[in-house]
């Protein structure tokens, strides 16, 4: 069977470098499933769940923003952050969500502040949603 070469990197470190069957990506314009022989694509990524299948197993990561490139059966994920499900601290994510929500409820934010808060909220929600099913 033909496999995809998947690399997931964040500015902090290399997360995954592996041969996989399929990758599912939360793209900015909608979710994408990448299989062997996919057309070259360059896309933004939103906060959410990224999963890949390897030898019948599905592995899920929570990512927050970044870019994905697919060329010649190599999938490169440049993520802002990426964590495996079991690395996520639900308590912290919940606290982050509340803080972001509070911030968003204020009326005096600048556009930039609003965007950062919004990004933080999405990130927290992605973490919480991802871990819900496993608890």
């Amino acid at each position: 069977m033909s496999l995809l070469q998947l690399s997931i990197v964040t500015p902090q470190r290399l997360i995954v470098s592996d041969q996989v069957d399929q990758v599912n990506i939360p793209g900015t314009e909608g979710d994408l499933g990448i299989l062997y022989d996919h057309a070259p694509i360059l896309t933004g990524m939103r906060s959410g769940q990224l999963s890949y299948q390897k030898e019948g197993q599905t592995i899920v990561l929570i990512v927050s923003g970044g870019y994905v490139e697919v060329t010649e059966n190599r999938v490169t994920v440049l993520a802002e952050t990426a964590e495996f499900l079991d690395e996520i601290d639900r308590g912290r994510a919940e606290a982050a969500r509340q803080k972001a929500e509070e911030l968003l409820n204020r009326a005096d934010l600048t556009d930039e502040e609003f965007h950062t808060a919004q990004k933080k909220l999405f990130r927290a929600i992605a973490r919480l949603e991802g871990t819900e099913s496993s608890h």
């Binding site: 793209g27 900015t28 314009e29 057309a39 070259p40 694509i41 360059l42 896309t43 933004g44 490139e69």
Partner: peptide, 8 residues
């Protein structure tokens, strides 16, 4: 060499 599909 094919150009990418860009999203957005």
């Amino acid at each position: 060499v094919v150009d990418y599909i860009y999203e957005p």
